[in-house]
Each structure stands twice: as C-alpha cells, then as structure tokens.
Design a protein around this nucleic acid. Structure first.
Lengths: 229, 229
DNA sequence: CGGGCTGTTGACGAGACTCAATAGGGGTGG
DNA sequence: CCACCCCTATTGAGTCTCGTCAACAGCCCG
C-alpha cells in the first residue's frame, strides 16, 4: 500500500452506507493519480479494497506484451479478494483522482468471525464480484466484435445505474475498452461507428452516447446458428 | 431439486474432508445421468452445490442458439452461488453418473452466522470460484485458438491434480471444449492436431494425451505484439 | 506553438468460422 | 449376437471477420 496522500475514516460520497463503514478506523482511503498502481501482480494480498469514485482496472500482461483487463472497477465495486497469499493480477487507477479505500484483510477476517453481519456482508461482496466475472465470461465469449461492443455499452449503462433514456458515459479510453473485450482498438472504433450507422446509438462526444435500441445492442452479430451440442 | 435416486449423508469419495461435511444431515447427494439438469437458468437459487465426481457444466444459451459454457465443474468444485434470488445460468451433468451434493442455502447461511468456521469456509469457497473465473477471463481473452486450446490442456492438467508426467484426461467432448473456449469444434480439433504436429503433446486416445512441452502450450500464438496504449 | 496521446478510417492479409464429407465407436434394438 | 444408426472426431475448401500496418485529425499539455 504505497501511495500518496492518505485520509482516514472518510466514507466515500455517493456510495450507499455499508456495514464495512463501521470499521472506519481500520480503513485507509487514498486518492490516486491516473495509472497509479493500487497493487501489483505478485504483491502479498494484505488488503481488500473498494473503489469510491473514478475508475480502476484489474489486468494481466500477456507474454506478448499485450494487456488483458480482467475487470473494470466502478464506484462501489469491491476487489482484491484472492484465495492465495499473493495477488494474481495488478490493479491500478484508470482516471486521475480515483478514490480507493483499503481494509486490512487479516483483521477484517478476524472481525468477521465474531460479527456475523460483517461475515455475511463479505460473502455477499465476493458473490457480487463472482456474478460480475460470470457475466464477463459471457461477454468475452461473444462471437462478433459488434456484439461485444454493444454488450459492453449496455453493461456500462447498467453498472453506472443511469435511467433508460440517459446517455452512457464512458470514462475509459478506447484502449481500455479494447483490452477489456480482447479486441484491437481499431475494431472497437469501427464497431462503434457501425452501431452509430445502424442507428443503435447516437454519440454526442466520443465518451458519451445515447442508447437508442438496447435490445439490438445485445443481439447484434448473433446470427442464428444451430446449437453445437 | 427434481432428480432421480436420492442418497442422504453420503460423503463423496476422493474429496478431502470439509467443514461442510459436518452438516451432512442438511446435504442431499444424488447421482445424475449425462445431460441431466442440476438447475435451470431462472430457477430459484435455493441451494449450493458441490460436484463429487464426474463432470458438470454451467452454461448459458445465446440468442443465436449457441451455447457458452461459463464454467466446467470438476470433482470438489462448489457452484451455484449467486447474489440474486435466481440462478442466472443453468448447470447440468456432462457425464453419466456424475455425483452432486446440495445444501439448502438459507439454512447454511443461518448456520454460518453462528459458526465462524463455516462462514470462513464459505467465503473461501466463493473466493476460489472467483479465482477460477478470473483465470477464465484471461483464457477467453487469449488471441489465437492454439493458445486457447494449449492453455486449456494445462488448466485441465492442473485442476485434475495429476503429476507433471501424467497424461491429461479429457472427460468432456470436443463440443464442450469448443463452447468453453468460444471456438468452433473444427477449430478445436485442428488446434489439437497442430499441437501434436509441433510436438507439444502426444495423444494416446482422443480423450487422453501427454503434455510434452508445457511452457510451449502456454505461450503458443503469443506473437510478440507491442503493448496497446 | 509543438509534441505526444487519443480516436477514426482505409487497405491488406492471416486466422477462424461455415459448409461438407468421411471414418470410427458405442449403444440400442431386432 | 449382430447390425444399424447416431454421435463424435477429424480433415478439406471457401468465405468473412478481425488484426495489423498506415495515415490523419483533434486535443490537451507542456
């Protein structure tokens, strides 16, 4: 946990209250610069984290030098859980001023043993994280680039908890999207252009667009193929 | 939980003892036919499960009719955890005679509140499942088919806990592998042929092969590409 | 004002998917 | 017990998507 200005006991704004907040004295909140590491792959997994605001990315670097983003972290997302003693992936802030809260893992686990409410909350959190990753396996398995990007827009719209008519705000770069979907940047860009051409989205700026046809986004590229059994 | 012959309090053989086993009276163990559903997508998530022996698959059906296997379940794997009230995916036995144990979720959660050891064990299980899915996101993100299939062989070799020189036994069909890696059956078959041709594996039967060059399997297709961004 | 970063678009080629044919195996029913 | 058939696995040929290389425009920041 080597980072810049540290603030104690500061509940992040805009996030619903949490049983974990009652353990404020244990928590350590800090503000990160863009690209700043929260932890590195191989670091001892001493803490659990929650992203307060901004954007984070959990990723691995492939032998070829290519980056694979395993999970994009939005406000309220918990991360850093691992069964092993060391983090298998790295995590870093993807935006300037990203706020991250850290709890010491050992102490929290001890407290959970005496406080069922905390224990249940932690189970809930890991299961939520699990659901996110399952959805992710599905997204990565999608056949076409159009379907991947379309599904990504819907996912982001849902995860940022915006109304049906509200535009999606993509705070991450095209490179982040590409590495998240295992596509090239050019393909992501082309897919967005194509979705626009087909009238599924209307972009105002490159990082903000309105979803016109949500169901189309989900189903694009899903050509009727017979089920392989 | 609508299934054939039900056996109570039968600890599955070949699996290490578990705190959960002390709740035998709660558990319900059953033997499944090949292709038999354990639960369907949309079913109320009333139970947690462990696969005793055989093989299971957790999957989703895409609009196009294509199947995406979200997780392959091996002996000892726990599954069925979800944050929601309903299972987002379906799970079924992939082999004849697959043995599955089910615990009622509500009761287990109540017990976990009073027994820290059980609570910790459940946390551990979900986190293990989490790790498996993260590794999966990585596998699906791999670029080439050769790399996907190579990585799959290594994953199966590790997960079945066999010695370095022991052959990998693939109890699942090529279709299962294809749907797991989001490839077509033909591509999987061709990749295996190519790996054999390159001397990375030596197959005895279609479902059993010896890994000769493990590091090659991992790195295949990882052509040196410059890091995006 | 200049330089690097980001985003978009075009041209080209490699790799994966589809369609198709064939061989082997296991299970079922006659 | 045998024969048939369906399921599984493999291989070939053609098409098409996506990755790569390249060029270019806009923007922020120094």
């Amino acid at each position: 946990v080597s980072a810049s200005p540290e603030i104690r006991c500061v509940p992040p704004p805009g996030v619903r209250p949490d049983p974990l907040d009652s353990f404020g004295p244990l928590a350590l909140t800090r503000r990160c610069r863009r690209g700043q590491r929260i932890y590195d792959a191989g670091d001892p997994a001493t803490h659990w984290y929650r992203l307060g605001s901004g954007l984070g990315r959990k990723f691995a670097l492939r032998p070829g030098g290519r980056r694979q983003i395993v999970d994009l972290l939005l406000s309220g997302d918990f991360f850093g859980f691992t069964a092993r003693a060391e983090h298998p992936f790295a995590a870093e802030a993807a935006l300037e001023g990203t706020v991250v809260t850290a709890w010491p893992r050992r102490q929290l686990e001890r407290l959970a043993d005496s406080d069922p409410r905390l224990g249940a909350r932690i189970r809930e959190l890991t299961i939520e994280s699990l659901s996110r990753l399952q959805a992710r396996a599905l997204a990565l398995g999608r056949a076409s680039a159009l379907e991947k990007v379309g599904g990504f827009l819907v996912e982001m719209h849902e995860r940022t908890r915006r109304g049906p008519g509200d535009p999606v705000v993509l705070t991450m770069s095209r490179y982040d999207i590409a590495d998240y979907l295992a596509l090239s940047v050019e393909t992501v860009s082309r897919a967005l252009t194509e979705l626009r051409r087909r009238g599924a989205i209307t972009p105002s700026t490159p990082h903000c667009m309105t979803i016109l046809d949500c169901s189309a986004l989900r189903g694009f590229g899903a050509g009727a193929r017979p089920a392989t059994r």
